[in-house]
Design a protein around this nucleic acid. Structure first.
Lengths: 158, 158
DNA sequence: TTTAAATAGTACTAAAATAGTCCTGTATTC
DNA sequence: GAATACAGGACTATTTTAGTACTATTTAAA
């Protein structure tokens, strides 16, 4: 129905590893080795997580990453925001919406309600809890978007 | 963060039109004309909605579609299930999971919790409410998946 | 009883989004 | 100053989503 991207999933693996390491500084290479993910991907993820201030980095030789906060203070919502961008179900449901029909839209419409509830659920889950859900090495694989939908259209709603 | 597909969004437009029409039988062509969507797409959507038993169809000349139930009895969760498949955030969080690590997984893990809460939120919103959120003709366009993520990986977690 | 309108199903094509790689630059340690 | 590691961005490949086309079946009406 919904899904998180593979990279976001990997991101939680990376963060879980950092959580395990406690305060220790780990390099992207080390994390890649520990998790079985590719080094470039891990590197990419860590850069994004650093920009989102979920991890802090130290550059130069012996550099690396550590969590910026305690695992209990990092939420699933933040992780997803960091790796997928703060996007909402429909354009109107984002706070920074640019939907040209916005003025016409009913304020507080249902998609927005749904979006809010989803965010609330995600903000309620911390990295600590996600770690529990994921013993040692990644056990989830992401669901390929399902069979889905046949075919058949042409024009777009304007 | 999450998003519904364009087709799902169109699907709610189509259903909203049928809801307006009350019990009247509408053909795919008529709905396409009324909504501004392409006929083949509307047709495709209606086929799927019919398979999911959200609409009923009559074949042959003068055939068409109508809602299978009152709009208040059709939920957002059902619409999404019908058009995107009953997929969950990660493979493990679906009921029919085939994750090979499942035995190792903590039962009732956090992604499952999140997924449940999302479903609950979606099951709480009816077509009637979605209609209110969407005055007359489609006012939403879907958010293109955001800037997102740089690049960098190779191997997969097994 | 034939024709036309309409749904059912499926295969295919095109476009867009996601995932993954690489390269260049900068900071830091030894 | 050489080696290590992060920062940032451009680029490529793969996968998913969206959209189209075609064939079969059903039904009503001429």
């Amino acid at each position: 129905m919904f899904r998180i991207s593979k990279l976001t999933d990997y991101g939680t693996v990376v963060l879980a590893r950092l959580a395990e390491a406690d305060e220790e500084l780990l390099s992207a290479t080390e994390i890649a080795a520990a998790t079985g993910l590719g080094t470039p991907t891990v590197s990419k993820l860590l850069k994004q997580l650093a920009r989102a201030e979920l991890v802090t980095s130290e550059r130069g030789a012996n550099g690396g990453y550590r969590l910026a906060r305690a695992p209990g203070a990092i939420t699933a919502a933040e992780i997803i925001d960091a790796l997928e961008g703060p996007v909402a179900i429909t354009e109107c449901s984002g706070q920074d919406s640019s939907c040209e029909f916005e003025e016409v839209c009913t304020v507080g419409n249902s998609w927005q309600q749904i979006n809010l509830q989803i965010r609330r659920a995600l903000a309620d889950i911390s990295l600590t809890e996600l770690q529990k859900a994921r013993p040692v090495i990644p056990t989830f694989r992401l669901v390929p978007m399902p069979a889905g939908i046949p075919r058949g259209n042409k024009s777009d709603q304007h």
